[in-house]
């Protein structure tokens, strides 16, 4: 079980919920969120995400990471007030409890 603030990920049942409300994620989105949660409070770069989530060892021109992060963000943050996934300018992303 991985947890940040009121976001919970059950690795065995492969479910995600925030504030007790169940959130449906695509497999790739689940892996992305899992990686962010495993490195909670740490800045995770685009390259790290490409390698860990997609096993891509090169840098596509397309904003693959941005697109997926924004989808995950839309599912876990929208309508919950505080944003958990934050963009670190020029570096990457970090998931952390607000405040």
């Amino acid at each position: 079980m991985l947890r940040v603030a009121d976001l919970e990920m059950d690795l065995i049942r492969r479910t995600v919920s925030r504030g007790g409300r169940r959130i449906e994620l695509q497999p790739r989105e689940f892996r992305l969120l899992e990686y962010l949660l495993r490195h909670a409070e740490q800045v995770v770069t685009r390259t790290m995400l490409l390698e860990a989530v997609w096993d891509f060892h090169f840098d596509p021109q397309t904003n693959v990471v941005e697109t997926h992060v924004s989808r995950v963000r839309a599912k876990i943050d929208r309508g919950f007030g505080a944003e958990l996934i934050q963009t670190v300018r020029g570096a990457g992303y970090v998931i952390r409890a607000p405040g």
Binding site: R28, W54, P60, T62, N63, V64, T67, H68, R71
Partner: peptide, 13 residues
């Protein structure tokens, strides 16, 4: 398949 899946959301957006 992995590549196409990774790029599909961009096309969709």
């Amino acid at each position: 398949g992995d590549v196409a899946d990774a790029l599909a959301p961009t096309a969709e957006d």
